[in-house]
Each structure stands twice: as C-alpha cells, then as structure tokens.
Amino acid sequence: MRRAVDAAGRRGPGPRARCARPASRHRAGGRIAVTDLVRPDGRSPGRSQGRSDGRSGGYPDWRPARARSVTLRHDRVRGLDLLILPERVVVLRGAAASILALCDGERDVRAIVAELERRHPGAPVADEVPVFLDRLRHEGWLR
C-alpha cells in the first residue's frame, strides 16, 4: 500500500483520506434550539407580561394569525406540539397548540376566548389567553 509523502518527507494516510462526517454537521447555525414556551412555574418566559402601549387586554379588532415563517406541527413520534420557526423549534405545552390553531386570521381575540371557554369551562381563559397571544405577538410569531 502506497502512502502519500508531504513536502517535509512525512508519510500520511494518503490524499483521499477525509473526515467521515458530512460538512453540514459542522456548519455554523446548523443546530436546532429547543425552548419551552412555558417556564416550570407556569408563567411564560420573557421580559414583561403586558404591552407597553397600554393595549394589554383590549383587542377589539386584532385578528391574530401566525407569521408567514411560523408553522404549527404535531410530532407523532414524541407526542409533542411544535412551533417551527426559522432556525428554531419551540415545544408547546398545555393548551398552547389549541390556542394557536384558532389563530387563523379570521377570528378576533374575543372569538378565540369564547371558543376556548366553550371547550374548557371553568378555566381562566379570559385572563390568560389575551396575555399569551400578546406575548406571541411581541415575539413576532403572530401578526
């Protein structure tokens, strides 16, 4: 078996020996960050819970819809609901996926709250859902 010899006279493995791993694994930004939408204490992560312009609860005309680059998927293997974003995946817990499924651009926030109150009687939907939607809007995941 012939071995390649470099300019210094050292023998090496030959000109065709390369790294066995594909280059895509080493590319910057190739990793997928998985974050939870809700912290262990039950609150959503981030800076603040409300809007800075005073419109925290009053959404008379906002019809939330997912941003164009955001996709809602269900992972059948793991049994998880996922929000697919550019270069990031968000794991949804609890009723987050059912809330986002109602964000189709046709219903306003009041209609979404009314539908969720019908599905989950006795839950604090009217207090928590507008704050949750506002948080997603602040993140840029809803428009």
Rank of each mutant, 00 (worst) to 15 (best):
A17W: 03
R25P: 00
D127F: 09
S98N: 09
V91P: 12
V38I: 14
I112P: 08
I32V: 09
L72Q: 14
G94T: 11
R137F: 13
R76H: 11
V5F: 02
P124N: 13
A65P: 08
H138W: 05
P15Q: 10
R27A: 05
A20W: 10
I32Q: 06
P40G: 01
V90C: 06
L72G: 12
L82H: 00
V89P: 00
E117K: 11
D81T: 06
T71N: 13
P86D: 04
I32R: 08
P60N: 00
L136H: 04
L136Y: 02
V129Y: 06
R31Y: 10
D41M: 00
A97F: 02
A96L: 02
D81A: 10
A4S: 07
V5K: 05
F132S: 09
V70P: 03
D53R: 02
R143E: 14
R21Q: 12
A96C: 04
A126Q: 02
L83D: 05
L85K: 00
R66Y: 08
I32E: 02
L80C: 08
A101T: 13
H74S: 09
Y59W: 11
E139V: 07
A7D: 15
P121E: 05
D41Y: 02
G12C: 06
G46K: 09
L82T: 02
G54H: 10
P86C: 01
A114Q: 05
R135W: 06
R10P: 14
P130A: 10
H74G: 06
A111P: 09
P64K: 01
R110H: 12
S69M: 11
V34P: 01
G14Q: 05
V131Y: 09
V90Y: 05
R2P: 12
M1E: 11
